[in-house]
Write a protein that binds this DNA or RNA. Structure first.
Length: 225
DNA sequence: AACACTGTCAACCGCGTCTCT
DNA sequence: AAGAGACGCGGTTGACAGTGT
């Protein structure tokens, strides 16, 4: 049985105040990201670590772009979604200054509708195609979307297989080589000194528990342009 | 003006994965 | 090998704003 990530009685929830934001910013500027579990106490925040992490990543990080999505960003999201499904973090990794949450929200509120208006099924990116799989929110995933998404990230070969399996289960879904005019040349392979890597940089300030999580063994999603 | 409806987005939740012991 | 702890991800929720009636 997993313990709750924090003692919920003693933590604030809901919207962040400016003071809380400032505390978090100050702390991370001083000590860097990481060790989210212990950060709230160290920073004097009555929040759980997860909440702090989310607030920082989605809102406070200095490199965030925010604001409206450009047309080319929209295009890229649509194309990447056609290839990757709801792997928002992977998609966001190709959009500098954008977060997975932001991309996901934008997809659900704008792009889905836009595609529907154009007569394209946002689930499989096909024209005038009735939705075959009942999981409208998780186009390429079967029962557990989070499971498959993690699989893709970590174990590329089997994930490709699982994607292919889903294709079978869901009928004639689009496959990467079916995507027209994509020109993304997406490949998954083990790390090598090559093009753009969508990979989290190991944070030097990270604590012990996390430090080995991106070892040389971890396959990396490589994206070429 | 008041209410209902709809859209947006920040935040939460639960679960999978990874690492360490 | 098994269990615990921590992180990260995707799905979902709920508050708020905008729009329509």
């Amino acid at each position: 049985m997993r313990k709750p990530c924090c003692d919920k009685r003693d933590t604030n929830k809901g919207a962040w105040s400016k003071q809380e934001d400032q505390k978090l910013i100050d702390y991370i500027r001083k000590h860097g990201e990481g060790c989210w579990r212990t950060l709230p106490q160290a920073a004097g925040l009555l929040r759980c670590g997860k909440s702090c992490r989310l607030r920082w990543i989605n809102y406070l990080r200095p490199d965030l772009k925010r604001g409206n999505f450009a047309e080319d960003e929209e295009d890229l999201i649509i194309k990447l979604h056609a290839l990757l499904g709801n792997r928002w973090s992977l998609i966001a990794g190709r959009l500098p200054g954008r977060t997975d949450n932001e991309v996901k929200n934008y997809w659900n509120s704008h792009l889905r509708r836009k595609l529907l208006k154009m007569g394209i099924d946002p689930n499989n990116h096909r024209l005038n195609h009735s939705i075959r799989c009942s999981t409208a929110q998780a186009p390429y995933n079967n029962a557990s979307s989070s499971a498959t998404s993690s699989t893709l990230k970590v174990r590329a070969p089997s994930s490709l297989k699982s994607h292919a399996d889903n294709e079978k289960e869901c009928g004639d879904r689009i496959s990467p080589d079916e995507v027209p005019d994509l020109n993304l040349d997406l490949a998954i392979s083990f790390p090598s000194p090559s093009p753009v890597k969508v990979e989290k940089e190991p944070n030097p300030t990270k604590c012990k528990a996390e430090s080995g999580s991106l070892s040389a063994q971890s396959p990396t999603l490589l994206l070429f342009r």
